[in-house]
């Protein structure tokens, strides 16, 4: 095979095609860039942030509620985005808050994906009573607003990052289960699976090597959207006081803490974390939107 042939094959490789199709939209590229920046900032927060906002030793309550640009009482630190009531540097708190958002969003989505996908695959491939039972549970789950499920679970468990992840997984796994099942059902009837069965391949091998790859594209779209949904839900729950502890405020809790100061014009405590949250969700939605167009040929723009 000549180099040119190889290049041609590469060019036609699905991944290649997807990347090219994705790059079609400048808006989607901008979203991706923004997302990369946000994730990088979240990962690098301990090195970027002027202060560790979760270390009570580093906070000084005498610096509480300072407007953006103020200098700390000991003259060592400039609070670019102001401070909250506890004397926490808002910029640092937002960077650390993004970290929580990203961790919660990704962890919850991956776990929910794992649980939902596994159940969905089994149900879709084997069908039968398990399928019927699972779909009943999925129906119940989807009939119930995710925010209510999560609220009740958090009221049960108490606060904490692990607990909020569990609550999010519990309220989102059903989406994956249903998506996977419907794709798996369609694929399971196709000729190549029939052929694989006739060849005597093990069920595990068929499911994971042949069925799963075909389920992935739609699942990726769902997952991309659900990361955004998970982050928004975590923020909402924290805002309602059901999410994370006060000493480790996530973006939602930072916004909630600023609520009472809004009326007296101390806008910065709520405004900046909200903007950070908005940008994160926007970047995720832009990416997810384009992914859907790219990975789902039926909906692709003509």
């Amino acid at each position: 095979m000549s180099a040119a042939d190889q290049a041609a094959v590469m060019r036609d490789h699905p991944l290649r095609r997807w990347i090219r199709a994705y790059a079609d939209s400048r808006l989607a590229l901008a979203g991706l860039g923004l997302l990369v920046l946000i994730v990088a900032a979240a990962i690098a927060a301990p090195w970027l942030a002027p202060q560790n906002p979760y270390d009570l030793m580093q906070l000084d309550m005498l610096d509480g509620r300072l407007p953006p640009g103020s200098v700390s009482g000991d003259g060592e630190l400039r609070y670019l985005l102001g401070t909250d009531a506890q004397g926490r540097d808002m910029l640092s708190a937002i960077l650390y808050g993004l970290r929580i958002s990203v961790v919660v969003g990704v962890a919850a989505t991956l776990l929910a994906l794992l649980v939902g996908m596994t159940l969905g695959l089994v149900a879709g491939y084997f069908g039968g009573r398990f399928d019927a039972l699972l779909m009943r549970v999925v129906d119940i789950q989807l009939a119930f607003p995710s925010i209510l499920t999560a609220m009740i679970l958090l009221a049960l468990f108490g606060q904490g990052i692990d607990k909020i992840i569990i609550a999010l997984v519990a309220s989102q796994w059903a989406y994956y289960a249903r998506t996977t099942r419907s794709v798996a059902m369609v694929e399971a009837d196709k000729a190549y699976i029939e052929a694989a069965r006739l060849l005597g391949l093990s069920t595990l091998r068929i499911v994971f090597r042949h069925l799963l790859p075909n389920c992935l594209p739609p699942l990726m779209v769902v997952a991309a959207l659900q990361v955004a949904a998970a982050i928004a839900l975590e923020a909402t729950l924290s805002f309602l006081g059901l999410g994370l502890p006060v000493t480790e405020p996530s973006l939602g809790l930072l916004i909630a803490n600023g609520f009472q100061y809004l009326y007296s014009g101390r806008y910065w405590i709520s405004l900046f974390p909200g903007l950070a949250l908005l940008l994160t969700l926007l970047a995720l939605n832009l990416v997810a939107d384009q992914l859907r167009d790219v990975l789902n040929p039926r909906l692709r723009k003509s």
């Binding site: 009570l56 030793m57 906070l59 000084d60 309550m61 009531a85 506890q86 108490g158 606060q159 502890p245 006060v246 000493t247």
Partner: peptide
């Protein structure tokens, strides 16, 4: 919640490594 956090801050200053949980 702020009172609890502030007292924790103050205890840290005398060497007691105070953490906070509010419910």
């Amino acid at each position: 919640a702020q009172v609890v956090q502030t007292v924790a801050q103050l205890l840290n200053r005398v060497g007691i490594r105070a953490k906070v949980e509010t419910l």
